[in-house]
Computed example of a mutant assay.
Amino acid sequence: MSNNTNKILTALAAGIAIGGILGILFAPDKGENTRKKIADNSKKLSDSILDTVKEGKNKISGLKHNLRDRAESLKESVEEFAS
């Protein structure tokens, strides 16, 4: 992924995490329950982000292979035409 894409995904994930934590902290509940909610939601968020990143990498890899195949096909067509 490009550097800008990584920055955007990181900022998005941080914003979601901070918003979720603030929402939990300001909700009326016992401290023990709040800490458990934060831990549970942090794990879910982490898993979700990792899944999204893996999916993005797979899509980019597929696009890269597709582009490479098309470039090779175009190269072969040009070579045949030039012959």
Rank of each mutant, 00 (worst) to 15 (best):
H65Y: 13
S42V: 06
G31W: 09
L12I: 00
V78M: 10
S61H: 08
L50T: 04
K36F: 10
I49C: 05
R35Y: 12
F26D: 04
K64V: 07
E55C: 06
S48A: 10
A27C: 11
I60M: 11
L45R: 01
K37S: 07
T5E: 09
A17G: 07
N58F: 10
N4E: 10
K30L: 08
A14H: 10
I24E: 01
D29P: 05
T52G: 08
T34G: 08
I49A: 06
N33S: 14
N66F: 12
T52Y: 06
N66E: 14
S83W: 08
L25W: 00
I24P: 00
S61K: 07
I60R: 09
L22T: 05
A39W: 05
E80V: 13
A71S: 13
K75Q: 13
P28R: 04
S2W: 02
L45D: 01
I60L: 15
D29W: 07
N6S: 08
G15N: 08
K36T: 10
E76Y: 10
I16C: 06
S61Q: 13
E79S: 14
I60W: 07
S73Q: 14
N66P: 07
A13T: 02
S48T: 07
R68M: 15
I18D: 11
V53I: 04
T5Y: 08
A17L: 06
P28M: 05
T34E: 11
K64F: 05
K64Q: 07
M1G: 03
D40F: 06
V78L: 12
I60V: 15
S73A: 14
E72P: 06
R70C: 12
M1N: 03
L12V: 00
L67V: 12
E76W: 09
A82I: 14
A17T: 05
H65S: 13
E55A: 12
G20L: 04
T34N: 07
D29Q: 14
I38N: 00
T52N: 08
S83R: 12
K59F: 10
E80M: 15
I38E: 01
R70D: 15
A11H: 02
S42D: 06
K59W: 11
I8S: 03
D51K: 01
L74E: 14
D51I: 00
K54E: 03
K36C: 07
A27V: 12
R70L: 15
K59R: 14
K30V: 09
L9E: 02
K37P: 00
A13H: 00
E80N: 15
L25M: 07
S61W: 05
E55M: 11
I24V: 06
K54F: 02
T10P: 01
